[in-house]
Every structure is written in structure tokens, then in C-alpha cells.
Design a protein around this nucleic acid. Structure first.
Lengths: 225, 225
DNA sequence: CTGTATTTTCAGGTTAACCTGATCTTACAG
DNA sequence: CTGTAAGATCAGGTTAACCTGAAAATACAG
């Protein structure tokens, strides 16, 4: 089996670059390398290849930005990833926290036509089960209108809107705590210096470390009664 | 992205070996190589690797047979392939002939848990849209009870039960002719020496080359009125 | 039982995506 | 405005899965 244009690595780089990008700021190669679990040298090598192919723009010592083409391809991968997550969770009834990892493999094996048909089948969902928006076929990704859990004040309540970035460990942990998207929580108190949060989830008290809290986004903030 | 145990090639070899096997007869390496579009040398190399891993039994100058382990893994790949085909055709309403190629990519990216959930979701289909049986989770594959179209006599009618082996070109061609699984046909006449068949499909006359006919299997044979 | 075609092996080569270690270049903070 | 950490590059190495060309081993048919 000759491995035709071997997209998978390329797609992972583009996807990761897209996910790490905030606004127009270039993404550091070291950040890319870190997230992909690859050495800085390897990442630099690959970035050169991507540059050759016109998928990224590399400003030495600054970082990379995706070209139109690159952003488009990245969005396509993210799109299929999130749609598969919807399918796995909503239709196949597979666990909320494991769907992410499984979709990480499916996302590279999905033809755009399949992705589009899947979207229709699912009824054009707006977000994945973890709250992240689903890119449109033309590559636009709407900015989520939520705020970090770290901005919630003691005595307030809110609904978990999104987990980002999605990591297998955190999703599994949150799943165990019952802290899935759509869950309303009340912040009882917060230790300073990124210490743990004390949350009321239904009838239960949950303690959540600051690192995890930084990856949780909320909306529908209210003063708890 | 480090490419962890890189299954894809291995899976293709195992799957192909399984598909080429008839009974207990060993599969020639050249046959494997031919089907995979790879040189005999490369196939031999890979067969050695598979032997090391205990997936395959290689008798020099005879061919290979799958070990229990190998057969099991092959069945898992075929299983996910055919279940995906069901999903793509029956649920996503994607074209009957293109589903095969798309499933060829998905099959390697599917966790067994996902495969099993998919089977439940689809309602335990017995065959893929092209008529091939879906292996059970434990790796058994039921022998189809159909016969080659080449055994049909002029004046008889039958229902297309299965296309095998599935190749993109043939499926696309048959799709254009309306010769999909489940279609009842009547054999008007047959030229000798594997010449073309003259078929009545509904109201239409179709001519089908002998090579194509060899990949079509039928059942429900009746004498046409 | 020999000859030819198939199989296998050997030698040597390629590519993509990784790696480490060492060196060079640049940004920016004090 | 200089020193140091972060970033980039160079050199050299690995692995899996391919390749071609050529030589050796074997099967089996006439």
C-alpha cells in the first residue's frame, strides 16, 4: 500500500496551528511542537515543508500564521472532528469524554463529501458535545460567546458551555465529576492564586483545580439564590 | 505527531490476505502484492514482518495463511469497513458505489468500541450494501449462499446478491447500469468464451462484459416468464 | 528429469517523519 | 547595550514502507 499524499501529519500541524492561533498573532513553533509531542527541530522541519506547500507563513523567530489555504484545510479537519464527536455521542451513545480521542482518528479519514453529508444527517449542529463551534464548509469558525470559569465570582452560578482545549485526561476527569457541558454549577468559593474552586453541582460539592478551571468556559451567569 | 504502531499497512495486508483466501489454501505473495499495488519484494518484506508478529504463517514458495490472531484482526477491519458502508449508504444517503472507497479510509481509523456501537445503531445488518457479510465481533464470517452470475442460464432470472471483490471502477459502472444489489435481472443470452451477457433490467437491455460478470453473485434464480 | 516460470533473496536506494546534540542567531529585559 | 534564553539551523542517525535490478531457489508441467 503506497501511502499516497500523506496528509495525517500535515493535517495535525495545520489543525494544531489553527487551534493555538489567537487573532492574527503568529503561533510559536515551540508551542506547536509541544502540543504535538514532537521536538522543536522536527516541527521546524515540517513548518518548512508546509511553507513550501504554501499552507503556512513562517516569520523566523516569530512564529507561523496559516495562509488562506492552510486555514481552510485546518478548518476542514476540525469540522469533521467535531461532527464525528456529535455522531458518536448523540447517536452512538458513546461516552462524552472518549469521543474526542476517537474522532482524532476519524477526522483524517473523512472525505469532505462524507463530512457534509454527516452534517446534514446530524441536523446542522452548532457545536460539538464539548461546546466548540463547528466550522462551516467554507472554513469560518464563529467565536464562542462564553467566558472563562475563572471569571466567575463566589455566589454566582453558570452553565458549562465549553471545554477548551479538549484533552483526554481533563474530559475524563470532568466526566467523573459530572462537570459536562450544559451542567449548571454554583461557585461556592475560590482559593486565591489559582487554587482549587469549590463548586456545587446539583446536590454535590466538587473541588476543581485551577489548571482545569482554565480550560472551562461558561455562560448564563446568574447570582445564585 | 509520532505515528504510534502504524497499523494501516499491516491492516491492509491482513485484510487483503483474508479476502483472497479461499478455504485453507495459502495465499500467494504475488497475489497479495498485485492486489495491494506493491512489488513482490515489498510484499515479501512485509510478510516477514507479519510473520515476526505472529499474524501470518508463511510457507516459502507456497504462500501465506493467517494465524488466528491475524484472521481476527483482518475480520475486525473488514467488519468496520462494511458497517461504515451501511452507514454511509443507508443513513447518509451517499452513493452506493462511492461508499466503498470512503470506507477504505474509515476502516483503519475506527476503534473496536466504535465499530460495535455502530453495529447496534445500524440494527445488526447482515451484509454491507454490496452484499458481503459483516463479520461478527469474534471474527466469524458466514459464507454467502449465492452463486456466480456466470452460472445463470439464458431465460432465467435472478436477483443480484453480491458484488465481489468490490472495486471502485466496477461498482461505479454497475451503478450506472442500474445493476445494484437487490435488482432482479433476466439473462437474455450469453456469448460464449466469457463474452458479454445480455441482461434485461426492468425494461432496459444491458450488456455486461464477462470480467464484470465474474464479480457478480446472484440468488433467487427462477425461470423467467 | 529437465526447463521455464514463479518465488525468494540480496544489494542498494528513496522518502517522510521523526530523533539527539551542537552551534548559531535573534529578541528583549535589565 | 549587553547577556541570556528562546528560536533556528546544521550534522548525522533511525525507522517503516516502499522501489529497482539481479541472482538464487524451487515447483511443476511436459
Amino acid at each position: 500500500m503506497k501511502h499516497e499524499p500523506f496528509n495525517e501529519s500535515i493535517e495535525m500541524y495545520l489543525k494544531t496551528a489553527c487551534e493555538l492561533a489567537v487573532g492574527d498573532a503568529p503561533v510559536a513553533i515551540s508551542a506547536l511542537a509541544g502540543r504535538l509531542g514532537v521536538s522543536a527541530v522536527s516541527a521546524t522541519e515540517m513548518v518548512h515543508r508546509l511553507q513550501e506547500s504554501g499552507l503556512v507563513d513562517h516569520q523566523p523567530y516569530k512564529g507561523i500564521t496559516l495562509t488562506e489555504d492552510g486555514r481552510h484545510q485546518a478548518a476542514a479537519v476540525i469540522r469533521s472532528h467535531r461532527l464525528w464527536e456529535c455522531f458518536l455521542v448523540d447517536h452512538l451513545k458513546l461516552p462524552w469524554d472518549e469521543a474526542h480521542e476517537w474522532s482524532c482518528r476519524l477526522e483524517h479519514a473523512t472525505d469532505p463529501q462524507v463530512t457534509d453529508a454527516l452534517e446534514v444527517y446530524l441536523g446542522y449542529p452548532l457545536t460539538c458535545p464539548h461546546g466548540s463551534p463547528i466550522p462551516t464548509p467554507d472554513g469560518t469558525i464563529v467565536e464562542p460567546a462564553d467566558q472563562p470559569l475563572t471569571t466567575l465570582l463566589p455566589g454566582q452560578s453558570a452553565v458549562i458551555a465549553r471545554i477548551y482545549p479538549e484533552t483526554a485526561e481533563l474530559l475524563s476527569y470532568l466526566s467523573d465529576l459530572g462537570l459536562t457541558t450544559g451542567t449548571r454549577i454554583i461557585l461556592k468559593e475560590r482559593a486565591p492564586f489559582h487554587g482549587p474552586l469549590v463548586l456545587l453541582v446539583g446536590e454535590d460539592i466538587r473541588y476543581l483545580g485551577g489548571e482545569g478551571a482554565a480550560q472551562i468556559f461558561i455562560n448564563q451567569v446568574e447570582d445564585a439564590s
